[in-house]
């Protein structure tokens, strides 16, 4: 099944960088949302099977989005990678507790993003 990745970030620059990097890595199907609320609406419509989300966002932040997804019976298994500038121990642990599958501190390289996506997908495959 081809991945449809949802990229959530309130910074249009970051969304463009992530989407261009995904194109370069061969992940051509991606959609964008600028905050957690918009992302949650897109997820509920269906068709999203991977999520890359920022933490600091207006309306609904990344952590709230992760919590909402994990509480939803229909979407609780959605693979999630958080990409954020928040690189503090307590914050990473908070994200892990909320249920992220991996965590990347900005700035990231295309290699790091590829490695994390593959690692998460491999773990999901094993879990199935």
């Amino acid at each position: 099944m081809e991945l449809t990745i949802l990229v959530v970030d309130d910074s249009p620059t970051m969304r463009r960088i992530i989407c261009n990097t995904l194109d370069r890595l061969g992940y051509k199907n991606h959609v964008e949302a600028e905050n957690g609320q918009q992302a949650w609406e897109l997820i509920q419509k269906g068709g999203i099977n991977f999520l890359l989300t920022d933490w600091n966002m207006p309306e609904m932040n990344g952590l709230e989005l992760v919590t909402t997804i994990r509480r939803s019976p229909a979407h609780k298994d959605l693979p999630i990678i958080m990409i954020t500038t928040k690189g503090m121990t307590e914050e990473v642990l908070e994200a892990v507790k909320a249920g992220v599958n991996n965590y990347i501190v900005k700035p990231f390289t295309p290699e790091v993003l590829e490695e994390k996506i593959k690692a998460v997908l491999a773990k999901m495959a094993v879990a199935r």
Partner: peptide, 19 residues
């Protein structure tokens, strides 16, 4: 070009550091 694009992440990082 990819490297230039990746480097542009500094915009978002600087914004958050300023916050």
């Amino acid at each position: 070009v990819m490297d230039i694009m990746t480097s542009l992440q500094f915009h978002d990082i600087v914004t958050q550091k300023l916050a």
